[in-house]
Design a protein around this nucleic acid. Sequence first.
DNA 1: TAATCTGGCCAC
DNA 2: AAACGTGGCCAGATTA
Length: 552
Amino acid sequence: MYVVIEPSADRRGLHLVDADERGHPTGERDVSWDAALEVLRDRDATGVRWVFAHTAELYPRLIDSGVRLGRSHDLALCRSILRRSTETPDGGLSSLPADSWDAAWTSSGDDGSLTGFADLAEPGERPDAVAELQRQCEAVAASRAPSRLRRLLAAESCGAMIACEIRHDGLPWRRDVHERILREALGPRPVFGGRPVVLEELANGIRVALGAPSLNPDSHTELLRALRAASIPVDSTSKWELQRHDHPAVEPLLRYKSLSRLMTANGWAWLDEWVRDGRFRPEYVVAGVVTGRWATDGGGALQLPTQIRPAVIADDGWTFVIADAAQLEPRIVAAMASDTAMAAAGHGKDLYQGLVDAGTVDTRDHAKVAMLGALYGATTGESARLMPRLVRAYPRATGLVEAAARAGERGEQVTTWLGRSSPLPPDSWSAAVRAGAQVSATPAQERAARGAARDWGRFTRNFVAQGTAAEWALCWMAELRHRLFSLVDGDQHPHLVYFLHDELVIHAPEQSADFVADAVRDAAEAAGRGLFGDFPIDFPLDVAVTRCYADA
DNA sequence: TAATCTGGCCAC
DNA sequence: AAACGTGGCCAGATTA
């Protein structure tokens, strides 16, 4: 059932411990690295769940050896979920004193391998993985929602393997195309650093227009001073504020900002650091966001601007299958709330258009603005004005996010569909809210308390939607991975190369594109059923088969 | 001099 | 358009 997999004591191979469904050990053995490949493949074929202390410690090395595993359990990630979840109250892990499983893994060792937990573990001392597996199995079994939590832990752990696999395989990236984009926008790469010619010319234009010959346009302080000296009344140097002023400096300044951003975020330095052998290898951080979304640690994989996406081109004979979930968060909320009316509006196609067709709002744009406002907690502007219509037409879906907001304002935790809970607000928050509730509170304190409460309410409001959408996306990815593995054929099998919250990119041999497009739709359907069972909610995808990411 | 903060803008 | 959630990342400014 479970097989705990760790480096062996002599570090020359692997130590494997078999365990039953409650995490109790039933046998153990050491295998050398040479024999590991075969042993792991054989055991994996029997459907065991591999237990890693921390997937990124061992799995990349297994991938290098040609092994891909089917199912896994990441103790560090799962501890974090179980520790905080409201579904595992007293007796679970929530009351356990902090130990090394709560700490982040640290990188040490000259080969860059991860060797232990930071802070809490003695150097060289591994925490007991089997004991922790038992604790987690018990916590899940004793929880209020064992099957949902099991689904969440499995999906989270699978995500950890996928993050390693994506980094190993890499997103195809054409350096020549990227360099052409840079050259056409900025001019040739400066040999000794400094500004490229186009930026320098724009900087000069700005200096002339503002009458500030020594201005460094990269300095907010200098720029703000120069703008005001030129009688342009601005409070900031942001583009939305600059756009509103009619002055000869504005146009070159806006172009300078845009090109400067391209240069600093995804310019030549980025290319040198992040693209090797025709691949960009994202450093994903699984569950790096409180809501369960992935974050990144270097490389900016989650902010690739559309400007440079033309450089993402499939290998010869290969293509991309690019899929993104349409209006994911509204659908998630509709399903969580069993809002059949909103689910029906999203049946089969564009949910926003569905709201128009249902007569709730008059345009698709209004539908989108109103919906996003509900999810984010908008209080002003068009979004807030449209809200009452949404509330009237869909009281259940809107009621769910409203309830989450009220809970947050009271300082309570909220929980996603599968059981990931929000953190409690910090002590400083509670102190501010308490201070505002005192009879002796000053108006400023009252205002601060109200503001803090509402801020936290917007966070918890969004948490349930964003967090459950992240769970759906993890399940979607895991389902897809399972389907793609059935197609393994030497090195020629389709593989995931990019993940962006509600979007997947698969690099696939051209002849397999149709299969992959079907698989990614099947996987979305399966993810929806896995979370919401028979509730009639659709998760339609926009799917593109194209050799260039920019064409999707 | 190094660490931390701030403003701005990119993604969803 | 902004203000309405989650983030990363950069350059410059400020602080230790």
